Simulated assay, not measured.
Amino acid sequence: MQPIHISYFSDVLCIWAYISQIRLDELVTNFQDKIAIDYHFVSIFGNAREKLENRWRDRGGLQGYSEHVREVAKKFDHITVHPDIWTNVAPPSSMSCHLFLHAVQLLEMKGIVEPSEKMFEKATWAFREAFFTKLANVCDREVQYKIAQELELPIAAIQAQIDSGEAHALLSKDFEQAKEHTVTVSPTLIFNEGRQRLNGNVGYRAIEANIRELLHNPPDEASWC
């Protein structure tokens, strides 16, 4: 049986995607080769500072958003958030992160790094964790290089994927797929060739139920529903 394909859209700077990572890890552990996750980025924080300052203007601006993020984080024991999140450091755009991470993904696709080591997933988590726990400006290229070096990734090879335009092409593909599936929320999980989706802060059991339904009732089989 072919694995269930899940398209997972997220923004590196999104608190809900940071919270939801543990659910993805649990899915991979429990379903292993029964699912295949295709990772994509959606630009929720593509123009982060201006967007937050405008949307939170009447609620305290970046300070108000910082308080909101910290209140959200208090509800989840498995994550930590720096008390000065989005105040001392407010990255201007997640697009720089997404471009760099796609360059790492290309290294896996080309076999420059071993795909089984899942360096793209590790790098994505490292970016999220560095921002939310250490206030690292992960949009800054030097910070990105530092994280890559800590993961023992080849910096020159990553930069080559960016310089060649190939990483840009993957990011553009994300934009096209997000538009095709009208993805406007981070995170968003899409199943069954776009016929099923889960948006935002969805609990693990709800995600699991959708997968089990697809495993037990493949989409190409007739249904009485």
Score class of each variant (00 low, 15 high):
residue 203 G to Q: 06
residue 25 D to A: 11
residue 169 A to E: 15
residue 71 E to N: 10
residue 134 K to T: 04
residue 17 A to I: 04
residue 142 E to P: 00
residue 203 G to T: 12
residue 160 A to Y: 01
residue 182 T to Y: 09
residue 164 S to M: 00
residue 111 G to F: 09
residue 210 N to M: 03
residue 32 Q to P: 01
residue 223 S to Q: 10
residue 93 S to C: 12
residue 168 H to M: 12
residue 194 G to S: 02
residue 71 E to T: 09
residue 193 E to T: 13
residue 141 R to M: 13
residue 16 W to G: 04
residue 51 K to L: 14
residue 74 K to A: 10
residue 17 A to F: 00
residue 74 K to N: 03
residue 137 N to E: 10
residue 224 W to M: 10
residue 29 T to A: 13
residue 23 R to K: 11
residue 13 L to M: 11
residue 16 W to N: 06
residue 200 G to R: 02
residue 175 F to I: 14
residue 64 G to W: 02
residue 213 E to M: 09
residue 178 A to Q: 02
residue 41 F to N: 15
residue 80 T to K: 05
residue 156 A to D: 11
residue 180 E to I: 10
residue 177 Q to F: 06
residue 91 P to T: 04
residue 158 I to S: 05
residue 106 L to R: 14
residue 147 I to W: 00
residue 8 Y to P: 01
residue 2 Q to C: 04
residue 64 G to D: 03
residue 51 K to R: 15
residue 223 S to W: 07
residue 156 A to P: 04
residue 65 Y to S: 08
residue 191 F to T: 02
residue 4 I to R: 02
residue 18 Y to W: 03
residue 166 E to W: 08
residue 46 G to T: 07
residue 223 S to P: 01
residue 181 H to F: 14
residue 175 F to G: 11
residue 57 R to W: 12
residue 183 V to I: 15
residue 148 A to P: 05
residue 166 E to F: 03
residue 92 P to M: 09
residue 84 D to Y: 04
residue 65 Y to F: 15
residue 217 N to W: 00
residue 203 G to S: 08
residue 128 R to D: 03
residue 137 N to H: 05
residue 153 L to H: 02
residue 159 Q to R: 10
residue 49 R to W: 00
residue 1 M to W: 15
residue 76 F to D: 01
residue 68 H to S: 02
residue 217 N to L: 05
residue 121 E to P: 07
residue 190 I to N: 10
residue 159 Q to V: 14
residue 154 P to D: 03
residue 38 D to K: 14
residue 80 T to H: 07
residue 84 D to I: 08
residue 192 N to D: 15
residue 137 N to D: 15
residue 131 F to D: 01
residue 81 V to W: 04
residue 80 T to D: 06
residue 206 A to P: 06
residue 109 M to C: 11
residue 218 P to Y: 10
residue 108 E to P: 12
residue 159 Q to L: 07
residue 183 V to C: 08
residue 100 F to N: 04
residue 73 A to P: 01
residue 65 Y to R: 01
residue 195 R to N: 12
residue 90 A to S: 06
residue 74 K to M: 08
residue 139 C to D: 14
residue 49 R to Q: 08
residue 93 S to T: 11
residue 217 N to F: 07
residue 138 V to C: 04
residue 145 Y to A: 05
residue 161 Q to R: 03
residue 11 D to F: 06
residue 86 W to T: 06
residue 84 D to E: 13
residue 115 P to Q: 12
residue 225 C to S: 10
residue 135 L to T: 09
residue 142 E to L: 04
residue 102 H to K: 11
residue 109 M to D: 15
residue 196 Q to Y: 10
residue 37 I to Q: 00
residue 127 F to I: 11
residue 34 K to E: 11
residue 129 E to D: 13
residue 135 L to E: 14
residue 225 C to E: 09
residue 87 T to L: 13
residue 172 S to A: 15
residue 27 L to D: 07
residue 205 R to S: 14
residue 151 L to F: 02
residue 85 I to L: 11
residue 103 A to P: 01
residue 14 C to M: 05
residue 174 D to C: 10
residue 26 E to G: 09
residue 114 E to K: 15
residue 210 N to W: 00
residue 49 R to F: 00
residue 58 D to H: 10
residue 169 A to Y: 12
residue 135 L to A: 08
residue 222 A to C: 09
residue 190 I to T: 06
residue 207 I to R: 06
residue 195 R to D: 12
residue 2 Q to S: 06
residue 211 I to R: 04
residue 4 I to C: 05
residue 28 V to E: 15
residue 99 L to K: 09
residue 200 G to A: 12
residue 193 E to Q: 11
residue 6 I to G: 02
residue 155 I to S: 05
residue 56 W to G: 02
residue 65 Y to C: 00
residue 23 R to M: 13
residue 123 A to C: 12
residue 110 K to E: 13
